[in-house]
Every structure is written in C-alpha cells, then in structure tokens.
C-alpha cells in the first residue's frame, strides 16, 4: 500500500470513530502531535503537584490535609498513566522528562502562578481542575485509544477534585470576614489564568484545525472556554463571590455569557517563561530528578543483580 492509500485508510478509520491503536499505521505528524500533547498533559499533572504541595504541610485541619494529599497523589497517578500512554507511541518517559527539564516541552502555564493563601487550594480545585475537566471530558472521545481510555479514568477522579475545591471555597465564603477576603483574593488571582488555560482563540491556534480533523481534539479552544464560563458563573453566585471581569454578563440572544478580552500579552509572556513561578517550578522538578538519580541507579543495579542471581540459581 502506498502512503496516500495508508493516509486515506487512516482518515477513514478516524472518521468512522474507530480508535487508533499503538500498532496501527499512523501519519508521522499524528504521532508527533500526540506525543507533544500527551507529554505536555503528563508534565502539567506533575508540575501541577507543586503549587498544591506548597500548602500540604500547612493545611488547616487533618481532614483537609488528607484530602489534599489524596488529590495530589491522584495527579501523580494521572502523570503515570499519561506517560505510559505516550510511551506506546515510541518515546520513553526519560526522553519526555528531559524535554521538560530543557524547556523544550511545555506544561500548562497556569501552574506558573503562586499559591499565596489557603483559599488558592480551593480556587485551583474549582477553577483549574474545572477548566481541565472541560478539556478532558472532550478528550475521552479522542481518536487515539490509549489516550482516550486514560482520560476516562482521569475524568472520574477530576470531578472529585473540583468538588473538594468548591467545598473549600464554600466553607471560607461562609466563614469570617478574613476567610471571605482570602477566598475573594484567590478568585481575583486565579480567574483569568483559568480562562487562559483553553489556549489562544481558534483563529490564532496553530495546531487546532489539523487536530480537529484527526479527532485528537473534539472541541475548539473557544467552545471549551465558553462552556467553562457558562458552567462556572452560576457557581460563583452560589459562593457569593465576584468574578474579576466587569464585562461578564448573560447574553439572552446568544444564550451564553459574554466576557471581557483576555490579556494575551500576559498569556504569551508566561508561556515563554516569564511568569511569576516558571523558574521555580522547573528548578523544583530538576532538583527532585537530579537528587533522585542515585536512587534510580541503585534500584536498577539491584534489579540487575537479582535477575543475574535468579538466572545463576
């Protein structure tokens, strides 16, 4: 079969909603796009452990501490599934991690913002995980089998994460004046970065149209962003907190919320490495990895020794 025929057969399989599996033929660009997207997704889970980890040791009650630890542990688990799913495309976890550490691979820019008070943990759960869920629910139907199946598992856990985030903010918003102020402050800082998580406008997005055709992406950035805003505004009303966008209002005609223009200059600046915590986040990942090198080396030396003993014995 020539390349053209393979391409056509591949696209027909995608169009018929038959999942592409690791051993199936796929265009190189499809494979590359998936590696980029899945590794970026995995890195986001791992880097995302850091801003929340910042409050684990200071969680206000034992119950909150346990819930937060369990949530961060889930994220580590999501990172694992995603790295494993990406490995089915012929790249190793080490290669992906090296690309993260060298700055070649990206992760979600939202994790380059700092967690300054306890309510930030609520805001991350409610808004950041909420935005991630919008994206991930759509990805359950993505064309690549291992990615799609990973997403099904991940989505189950993410909805619990979003609820715990909302619960933190709900409790604070019904607490003392100081606690309400914490919650409002967190919302003021996390709202726009969460909206930015959906990426550039469809008209500006370089990879979008091909990814839609390959059904790697199932909904566009702007559609997902609108879905998220429409779902979230009523929840903010339940909390009795205000969202920091004066242009946010219901549009009867569109049956959607209108919202203000995103600060794209800030978005691109953080993507390019100039956010409040970009350097710290990467440095923390590199430090953990470098300091763990002797542990990984010892573990593989030990495994090798045991294997040789088994063969000799």
């Amino acid at each position: 079969m020539d390349d053209k025929e393979l391409q056509n057969r591949f696209q027909a399989q995608v169009d018929a909603e038959i999942k592409i599996e690791p051993k199936d033929w796929m265009p190189d660009a499809y494979r590359k796009t998936l590696i980029r997207q899945m590794s970026q997704h995995a890195h986001s889970e791992i880097v995302g452990m850091l801003p929340e980890g910042n409050w684990v040791t200071r969680a206000p009650t034992l119950k909150r501490k346990a819930i937060l630890l369990a949530k961060i542990q889930d994220e580590g688990g999501h990172g694992l599934y995603l790295y494993s799913a990406a490995e089915t495309l012929g790249i190793s976890r080490e290669e992906m991690i090296e690309a993260l550490h060298s700055g070649k691979a990206k992760y979600s820019s939202v994790f380059n913002y700092p967690t300054l008070n306890w309510a930030d943990i609520g805001a991350i759960g409610w808004l950041v995980d909420g935005a991630a869920i919008m994206n991930q629910v759509a990805l359950m139907r993505t064309s690549y089998g291992p990615y799609s199946r990973g997403m099904v598992r991940i989505c189950k856990e993410e909805s619990f994460h979003q609820r715990q985030g909302f619960d933190i903010l709900y409790t604070l918003s019904r607490g003392s004046a100081e606690q309400k102020a914490m919650a409002q402050d967190a919302l003021n800082r996390w709202w726009w970065p969460s909206i930015m998580m959906f990426g550039p406008h469809d008209s500006e997005s370089t990879h979008s149209s091909q990814s839609m055709k390959w059904k790697i992406k199932r909904k566009s950035n702007d559609e997902l962003r609108q879905d998220f805003i429409d779902a979230t505004v009523p929840q903010a009303e339940v909390l009795g907190l205000s969202l920091p966008d004066p242009e946010l209002k219901w549009n009867e005609e569109r049956q959607h919320y209108d919202f203000g223009e995103i600060n794209w200059e800030e978005f691109w600046s953080v993507v390019k490495g100039n956010g409040p915590c970009n350097r710290e986040r990467l440095a923390a990942r590199r430090k953990a990895y470098d300091e763990g090198a002797w542990v990984r080396e010892a573990a593989s030396a030990y495994a090798k020794k045991k294997k040789e003993q088994t063969i000799a014995g």
């Binding site: 791992i46 452990m49 034992l62 630890l69 542990q73 990172g79 790295y83 763990g292 542990v295």
Partner: peptide, 26 residues
C-alpha cells in the same frame, strides 16, 4: 513525609510516600 509530596526521586516513590503519609494521617 508530606513535605516530600511532589519532590520524590521518581513518580512511583512520590506516590508511595504520599500514600504512607495519608495512611498515617488516617
């Protein structure tokens, strides 16, 4: 142990140590 959350030598050990910490909090 919770101080190590997100800073383990590899993902698997990070998760395992967090798990022990969680059990002990329980």
């Amino acid at each position: 142990l919770s101080e190590l959350c997100g800073h383990g030598p590899a993902l698997e050990q990070d998760i395992a140590i967090t798990n022990i910490s969680l059990d002990l909090i329980g």
